[in-house]
Computed example of a mutant assay.
Amino acid sequence: MDFTLNEFEGELLDLGRTYAEREIAPVAAQAWHEERCPTELLRGLGELGLLGTLVPEKWGGIGSSTVGYVALLEALGSVDPSVASAWQAHSTIGSMPLLLFGNDEQRERWLRPLAEGRKLGAFGLTEPGAGSDVRSLRTRAERVSDGWVLTGQKAFISNAGTDMSFGVTVLARTGEDASGKPRFGSFIVPKDTEGFTMGPKLRGIGWKGLDTRDLFFDGVWVPDSQVVGEPGGGLGQFLSALEVGRISIAALSLGTASGAMRLALAYAKQHEQFGTPIASFQAIQFKLADMATEIEAARWLTYYAASLRDAGKPFKKEAAMAKLKASQVATAVVTEAVQIFGGAGYMLESDVARFYCDAKVLEIGEGTNEIQRLVIARELGC
């Protein structure tokens, strides 16, 4: 297996890495502590063409491979997991349903502004009583003569409430099939739609720069032109987009882990105890060696899953494996990074503490790690 980036992918990575170091790094900590989504940075990424990384040029994107996207996301995540999380949510579940299942009119009207970096995409799935158990979703879409009426609530939805957001694509129950199983549809709801409101920005222990809110739908009318694909095919659409999202979270996990390790390595080389840098102590060397090895193992899984998608081969199992492994590596690495910093790493003023707080959600978002294990087991035939 050769995951060497081609010339275009390498240029893409250099572009994103330079922007991250020059523009994102200087303000990342401040935005995180202010609990503010720095949309000016996302607009900057859009001006570089990087908000449409996975979208073909035909619809305003740049048509990168999944491997190139993963490399770019890892680089962004190593500087600021919060901004990178907003970027990846926009690029995958915020854009992929429209790209994969929308018609040309919808792609032109809704996907193009997302791909060109003029708007930020969001997808509404999770509810207060339904997350992993998707079939328990209660938000309903009832058929009326000229469209659909949505009623319900979504929880923990990212990117829908910024000054850059277009609105949200929502998964809602449309009825039941002949056997009584629920059917779902995906509906485009623009930000200014009557009856569509949002709660305040939620406060998490990490990803403080990511705008996450509860969304409320009180008799929201949606015309047929804003139904993505078949009214009963929404769940399958989302699950297809989620497979890409799992690779995305794996890449973000790599960035989080590698960023924390970079901080820990630099600190170990300059911080002295007993008259010598702590990097000379075998106990610290072993920690760093294990961290580097685990990151590299997770990297191979992640890039392999991405390469399978690029080759048009099944990648469901590999995406779940990558997400499971990489997110576990991220939480383990940031914990050891804080340990290397000691008391200084425990203080929220330190960058490594920011990475520590940002890591835990990687084991939860885009399908919990328990769900990843179920996916893997089923793909093994269990």
Rank of each mutant, 00 (worst) to 15 (best):
I249E: 01
A359Y: 01
G233D: 13
K287D: 15
V55P: 00
I249K: 08
L54S: 00
G206M: 11
A75S: 12
L150Y: 03
G46A: 04
P223D: 13
D214R: 02
E11S: 09
T18E: 15
E21D: 12
A297Q: 14
G245C: 10
G152E: 12
K119H: 11
G117T: 12
C382K: 09
E21C: 04
R309N: 06
S225M: 07
Y69Q: 03
V149R: 14
A86N: 08
A89G: 02
G312Y: 05
A29D: 13
G63W: 00
G365L: 09
R213F: 03
G259D: 04
A332T: 10
K269W: 01
E379D: 11
G234T: 14
P223N: 05
P128M: 12
G94S: 07
A75N: 04
R262Y: 04
L137F: 04
A330R: 03
I364Y: 00
A86Y: 02
K58E: 15
A31C: 08
S186V: 14
G245Q: 07
S307F: 07
F3R: 08
G342M: 12
G52W: 00
L114V: 04
L5T: 04
L239E: 14
E7A: 15
S145V: 07
G232T: 13
P182W: 05
D146F: 03
D2P: 06
R378N: 14
T331K: 07
K325M: 09
G199I: 07
A178Q: 05
C357V: 13
K154S: 03
V70W: 06
A264G: 02
G185E: 12
F123H: 15
E294R: 15
A353D: 06
L98V: 08
I295W: 04
L72Q: 00
I284D: 00
G381R: 09
T293C: 05
A266N: 06
R36W: 10
T276P: 01
E105H: 13
R262C: 03
L252M: 10
A155C: 06
